[in-house]
Amino acid sequence: MGMPTASATFTTSDFEVTDFVPDVTTALPTGHLRMRKVYTGEVAGRSVTQFTSAFDQASGVGTYVALESFEGAVEGRTGCFNFVHAASTSGQDRADEYGLIVRGSGTGALVGISGTVSLTIDDEGAHHMTFDYAIPDDAPRRAE
Rank of each mutant, 00 (worst) to 15 (best):
M1V: 13
G2N: 12
G2A: 14
M3K: 07
P4T: 03
P4G: 08
A6S: 14
A6G: 14
A8M: 11
T9Q: 13
T9C: 09
F10V: 07
F10Y: 15
F10W: 09
T11W: 07
T11I: 13
S13Q: 10
E16M: 05
D19M: 03
V21H: 12
P22N: 00
P22E: 01
V24K: 15
T25R: 13
T25M: 13
T26E: 11
A27W: 08
A27G: 15
T30Q: 09
T30S: 15
T30R: 10
G31N: 02
G31K: 02
G31Q: 06
L33Q: 05
L33P: 02
R36F: 03
R36A: 05
K37S: 06
T40G: 14
G41K: 00
V43A: 12
G45F: 05
G45R: 03
G45V: 02
R46P: 00
S47Y: 06
V48D: 11
V48W: 11
T49N: 14
T52E: 06
S53W: 15
A54R: 06
A54C: 04
A54G: 15
F55V: 01
Q57M: 12
A58S: 14
A58P: 05
V61K: 09
G62M: 07
G62R: 04
T63E: 13
Y64P: 02
Y64V: 15
L67Q: 09
E68L: 07
F70Y: 07
E71G: 02
E71P: 08
A73F: 05
V74Q: 08
V74P: 13
E75Y: 00
G76P: 09
G76F: 10
R77S: 01
T78D: 09
F81K: 01
N82C: 12
V84K: 13
A86Q: 11
S88I: 00
S88C: 11
T89V: 08
T89A: 10
G91K: 09
G91V: 03
Q92L: 08
D93A: 08
A95D: 11
D96T: 10
E97H: 11
E97R: 09
E97A: 14
Y98L: 15
L100M: 13
G104K: 00
A109C: 08
A109P: 07
A109R: 01
L110K: 05
L110Y: 05
V111M: 02
G112N: 08
I113Y: 05
I113P: 07
S114D: 15
G115D: 02
G115I: 04
G115Q: 04
G115V: 02
T116R: 11
T116H: 11
S118W: 01
L119M: 06
L119K: 14
L119W: 09
T120N: 14
H128W: 14
H128M: 01
M129S: 11
M129T: 01
M129K: 04
T130R: 12
T130H: 06
F131N: 03
Y133C: 06
P136R: 01
D137T: 15
D137C: 10
D138G: 00
D138Q: 06
P140H: 05
R141L: 05
R142N: 10
R142C: 06
A143V: 08
